[in-house]
Simulated scan of single mutants.
Amino acid sequence: MRSRSRRVSTHSSGTAQTPPSRSACQRANRRVTFTMINLRVPARTEDTPPPRRAAADLCRRSRAARMRNPAWWPQVRADMTTIGLIGSGNIGSTVARLAVAAGYDVVLSNSRGPETLRDLVAELGPRARAGTPAQAATAGDIAVVTVPLKAYRDVPADALAGKVVIDTNNYYPERDGVIAELEDGSATTGELLQRHLADAHVVKGFNNIYFKHLATLSRPAGAADRTALPIAGDDAGAKRTVTGFLDRIGYDTVDVGPLAENWRTQRDTPVYVTPYGSFTDPVGTPADAGTVRKAVAAATPDAG
């Protein structure tokens, strides 16, 4: 068993200032002179950090400020009608079926090309079409990344900038190879994808439930036997958007916290598959929010 370090995010206080734009932040590490002019970094003294680090620190603080400001949060909008799926295997195709049943359009993609998805598109009907991963990312108002973790760096980052992205990945070393940050607990799977998709809003979801149970346990809002799924993310607005999507496809949610806490829902933790039944049970057992919350709380840093 490996250990995971616990981290607590803190925000520095200071005088109010207009946050730099994301493009300024992206340029901070490439064009220091330009950034110094626009951010008005003062002349250095012995106690002043180097310009590059000062700009990067300000960008990090401004991102935290944006995330605390509801005006910057992604909203659950009536025009969020298309789900882009990057990966269309067991989980991806199941999410697509649930989304179409709930009235969404879906754009499916995989690593083998749109032509290999012809049968699935035909099954789903006129609300479905196939494309490349970049096309699915561009078309989706919400994107679902459901590829093997080893392929996360192939996910098209530019096309997902500014979008809410649901990350279904789990870490299986026998499939993905050994990933040092996950072995030593310095990062979670969700944090890895968020680093790659620096301008997107990543929310971990769908990673703890067997795809057959995901297909069968969907229930209307208010049903006594409605099942809950855990989510984790650093952006409150993105989590609200995902909660709205899950509600429409038939699930309640349990907010686990930031992406740093998504180890609580990974493979071999108490909330992984077990609350919904065994792999040998194709129907599954409903698990309400209280059941899921209790299982999440029972996770220990050495599990997984």
Rank of each mutant, 00 (worst) to 15 (best):
R240P: 01
T81R: 13
V292P: 04
H201C: 03
L124A: 08
S23Y: 05
P114T: 14
K239Y: 09
R97W: 00
L246C: 11
I231K: 09
S109P: 08
A56G: 02
P156N: 08
A180Q: 14
R63L: 14
L193K: 00
L58H: 01
R195A: 13
P133W: 06
P275D: 13
V202R: 03
T10M: 00
A96F: 06
R66A: 09
A139S: 12
G87K: 10
V8I: 14
A228H: 10
R52L: 11
R77K: 14
R127V: 04
S21R: 09
K239G: 13
R27N: 13
H11E: 06
A232I: 06
A157Q: 04
A232S: 15
M1W: 08
I209L: 03
R226C: 11
P42H: 08
D47I: 11
E183I: 02
R60C: 01
I91R: 00
V76T: 12
S9I: 03
V296W: 12
I209H: 02
K163I: 05
T274G: 06
L124E: 05
A299Y: 04
V254E: 13
A236Y: 08
S23C: 09
A151M: 07
L108H: 11
D255H: 10
A223I: 06
E115C: 05
V8R: 10
R226G: 07
N207Y: 03
R129N: 06
I249Y: 01
G113D: 10
T116G: 06
L229V: 08
G14D: 02
R22A: 07
A28E: 00
V271G: 07
Y104H: 14
T45Q: 05
T33F: 05
R77M: 10
P126H: 05
V164S: 01
F206M: 04
V8L: 12
S88T: 15
A200T: 01
W73Q: 12
M36I: 14
W73L: 08
R226Q: 04
R27K: 10
